[in-house]
Simulated scan of single mutants.
Amino acid sequence: MKKFKWMAMFTAIILLLSACGSESSSGSGGEKKIKWKFGHLADENHIWHKTALEFADLVKEKTDGQIEITVYPSNQLGGETDTINSIKAGTADLVISGETMANWSPKAALMAVPYAFRDANHLQKVVEGDIGKEIEEEIKEKVGLTPLYYHTRAPRNLTSNKPISTPEDLKGFSMRVPNVPLFLDAWKAAGAKPQVMDFNEVFTGLQQNVIDGQENPVDLIHSGGLYEVQKYVNETEHVYSWIYILVGNKQFEALSEDNKKAVKEAAKEAQAFGEDLFDKEIKEYEQKLKDEGMKFNEVDQDAFREVMKPAIKESLTDEQYKLYEEILAVE
């Protein structure tokens, strides 16, 4: 009888372990098999998801099947912050995140400061240079996540149901921003009434008139189906930014040296794959939004830049502002 009780307890323990985020089992050759969960907010047609699937295939191939990554799009594992917390708890393993990490890592706020980057070329020089490395190190230390590769994002634009061309048009305008204090302060300074909301709540918020608008790159405007509830893309182009694909430090450090090397190689190849997709698809997303009936409205960007400047200086700490000035100085 004791034997049967022991076997029942053993079975229960195995079932419990199999429910965890990073699952382990033996492969056909007896090697340890690792199963990672990768959650992000974009839909299945988005560049991030397509690249994530490519990355998962590359990792599986380069580790001879030892690491299997299942990708969960459309916030299936929860919102961005939820997924980061799940990684810390060990029930998820990878996420796509950017300036939201400023809630843990102050330097991550510089990933999306309004009007900090002149264009995509300026952005790339910063990300792949010393400033980018400095930000990555702090994310690793303070968020507990290891950046693997990144996506350049299309510039963020403001959407609405009325044309917004100058800051004066923002009076009484209620809008969603991500959980980034700097965004709240900048849009308040511009005259809007910003509020924090998870991206998965934005469509309903617009549909029910809880908010009047939101700001995001054209790919996420399309991915979120916002063309169904918004008429205008106002070309503020207020933020050029990038976003990282990250794995939990503990999950990454638990790998063998060979598997760490394989994951890094896969990440480098996924980076190139994503860049090719980005170049091809961003213009297509703009056209798709136009085809869905959205109108692109020209904006006085200098006016928005000027009204946001004081809020940026006031919102950033001395250390952050120093890094901001270093970014502006990159040629």
Results as ranks from 00 to 15, higher is better:
159 T>A: 07
13 I>A: 15
99 E>R: 03
90 G>F: 13
259 N>G: 04
249 N>V: 02
215 E>P: 02
304 F>R: 00
262 A>H: 02
7 M>Q: 14
83 T>N: 14
152 T>N: 09
157 N>V: 12
38 F>W: 14
149 Y>Q: 09
258 D>C: 03
143 V>F: 10
278 F>E: 08
6 W>K: 15
179 N>Q: 09
114 P>E: 07
144 G>C: 11
49 H>C: 08
79 G>R: 04
212 D>E: 09
156 R>L: 11
4 F>I: 15
239 V>Y: 02
127 V>E: 05
154 A>H: 10
330 V>Q: 08
43 D>M: 10
182 L>T: 10
259 N>Y: 04
65 G>Q: 02
227 Y>H: 09
139 I>N: 03
230 Q>W: 05
226 L>P: 02
99 E>W: 03
113 V>Y: 10
267 A>C: 08
39 G>N: 12
68 E>T: 07
199 F>V: 12
302 D>P: 02
326 E>P: 01
287 Q>H: 00
126 V>Y: 07
116 A>L: 10
241 S>M: 15
210 V>M: 13
245 I>P: 03
103 N>I: 06
105 S>M: 08
4 F>A: 15
149 Y>W: 14
24 S>T: 15
266 A>Y: 00
251 Q>P: 00
36 W>R: 01
231 K>R: 15
195 Q>R: 11
50 K>F: 02
28 S>V: 15
45 N>T: 13
2 K>I: 15
289 L>N: 04
53 L>F: 01
185 D>C: 04
70 T>G: 00
239 V>W: 00
34 I>W: 15
310 P>I: 04
193 K>P: 01
198 D>H: 04
194 P>R: 03
209 N>L: 07
303 A>V: 07
268 K>A: 15
205 G>A: 15
121 N>D: 14
314 E>T: 12
291 D>G: 06
14 I>N: 09
252 F>N: 02
95 V>D: 02
162 K>Y: 11
269 E>V: 02
61 E>H: 00
221 I>S: 07
250 K>L: 07
101 M>R: 05
105 S>N: 07
91 T>R: 10
213 G>N: 12
196 V>M: 13
53 L>W: 04
30 G>H: 10
213 G>C: 06
113 V>L: 12
173 F>M: 04
20 C>Y: 13
49 H>W: 11
36 W>H: 05
170 L>T: 03
125 K>N: 13
127 V>R: 11
320 Q>R: 04
83 T>E: 03
